[in-house]
Structure formats: structure tokens, C-alpha cells
């Protein structure tokens, strides 16, 4: 009953497995960065499509709501198990990154939407008055004003996504959590690997959150 008293943190073991975990953290970071790059593009496409004619905007709105209302884990299973049935066989890592990208693309499309709606109506009218075509209105006037205030929200979602990457372990990607699981089942020591994984996540995401907070504060000041 009191076996917790005899429990000790094995520092030697912790240091021994740390390099392996840090290498796995690199995979986790790669998945986050690539997944986020996909999400940024998918989000913009979805946000723009949602502004199109009803025949486009209606299904796109439904798609966004559907992706946001179902768990990422199930979506990953769908990609991982169903794509091969249609002859698309991708590696687990690529499947996972695409899953992350689509899921967070749906979330980011809402951020884009808010950012675009935030641009003053007068700016659109000025673009018409200056005879800008649609493409130049977007690239020279609307997006340059819409994007900077979105940055803190993008930062938030980047951190959220970083913390969701352990889900990829469920489709056999050997990232941070999966590596800890492998070490645990090999040595029967679970405390050190899982605790270290928690600490690595904390060490990376907490400073990132502080940076995002500072960005947020800066934009809040600018608006005043």
C-alpha cells in the first residue's frame, strides 16, 4: 500500500532516454510545422470559398462545421484506413500531417473570416473607386490589413496543434508520445518517459504562449 514511498525518480535512466526523446520531439515539431503550413493554405481557401456564390459557400460551410464537430482522432483513422481502400497509400506521417492540416484549416478559416470582416467597408469602396480588379483588391488592400491582427490567433492555434500531435501516435507515427510508449514497454518504467514528455511539451509551448501573449498585447495597444 505504501509502495509510493519506495518510489524514486531514476535520474540516470531519465538522462539516458532524454536524447532519444529529444530526437522524437524533432519529429513532433516537423509534423506541427508542415501540418500548420497546410492549415494556413486550406484555411484561406475555405474562407474565400465561403464568400463565393451560394452553390459553393453552402457546402463549404457545412464541411467546416462538420470537420469542427468531429474528433481529430476519428478523422485521422478515416484518412489512415479509408484512403488505402481507394488506392491512395501514404506513409503514416504524411497521413497524419494532412489530417492535422485539414482539421486546423477548418479552424483557421474562421480566423481568416473574422480578420477579413474586420477590414473597414470603406477600404473595399476605395478599391472600387480606384478601379482595382478583384485580385489586386485582395492582395494589395484587404489581405495586408486583415492578416497582421490575425497573427496572435494563428500563434494560438499553432500551439494548440503542437499539443495535438501526440494523436499521430494512434496511427503509428513514432513521435514524442509513441517513443515514450516504446521506452516504457521495453523497460517497464513509465514515470520517467511520460513525465519527460510532459516537461518537453511544457518547455516548448509555455515560452511560445508568452510570445503570443506579447503579440496580442501589442495589437491591442495599436487598436486603441
Amino acid at each position: 500500500m505504501f509502495d509510493w514511498i519506495t518510489f524514486t525518480w531514476d535520474m540516470e535512466f531519465a538522462l539516458e532516454i532524454l536524447p532519444q526523446l529529444l530526437r522524437a520531439a524533432w519529429i513532433t515539431l516537423q509534423a506541427t510545422v508542415v501540418g500548420f503550413a497546410i492549415a494556413v493554405v486550406v484555411g484561406l481557401v475555405l474562407a474565400l470559398a465561403r464568400r463565393g456564390p451560394r452553390i459553393v459557400s453552402w457546402p463549404v460551410t457545412f464541411l467546416i462545421e462538420f470537420i469542427r464537430s468531429t474528433p481529430l482522432l476519428v478523422q485521422l483513422y478515416v484518412l489512415y484506413f479509408i484512403l488505402p481502400l481507394y488506392g491512395v497509400s501514404l506513409s503514416a506521417f504524411v497521413t497524419g500531417v494532412i489530417g492535422l492540416g485539414l482539421h486546423y484549416g477548418a479552424y483557421l478559416s474562421e480566423v481568416y473570416r473574422a480578420g477579413i470582416e474586420h477590414v473597414d467597408k470603406g477600404q473595399w469602396e476605395a478599391a472600387i473607386a480606384l478601379n482595382f480588379d478583384r485580385r489586386r483588391t485582395w492582395t494589395n488592400i484587404v489581405l495586408p490589413q486583415a492578416l497582421p491582427p490575425m497573427l496572435p490567433m494563428f500563434g494560438n492555434y499553432f500551439i494548440v496543434m503542437f499539443k495535438e500531435t501526440p494523436l499521430l501516435s494512434a496511427i503509428t507515427v513514432v513521435e514524442l508520445l509513441q517513443t515514450a510508449k516504446i521506452i516504457g514497454s521495453r523497460t517497464f518504467n513509465y514515470v520517467e518517459p511520460y513525465t519527460l514528455v510532459g516537461l518537453i511539451f511544457l518547455a516548448l509551448s509555455y515560452p511560445a504562449a508568452l510570445v503570443v501573449n506579447r503579440l496580442e498585447a501589442r495589437f491591442a495597444r495599436q487598436r486603441q
Binding site: E164, L167, L177, K181, L202
Partner: peptide
């Protein structure tokens, strides 16, 4: 908030 919910679950 700083660590993954899945990591917490496993822990």
C-alpha cells in the same frame, strides 16, 4: 494548458 491532453491521460 501547456502539455497535451493525451500526454496527461497517459501519465
Amino acid at each position: 494548458r501547456g502539455t497535451s491532453v493525451l500526454v496527461q491521460l497517459f501519465w
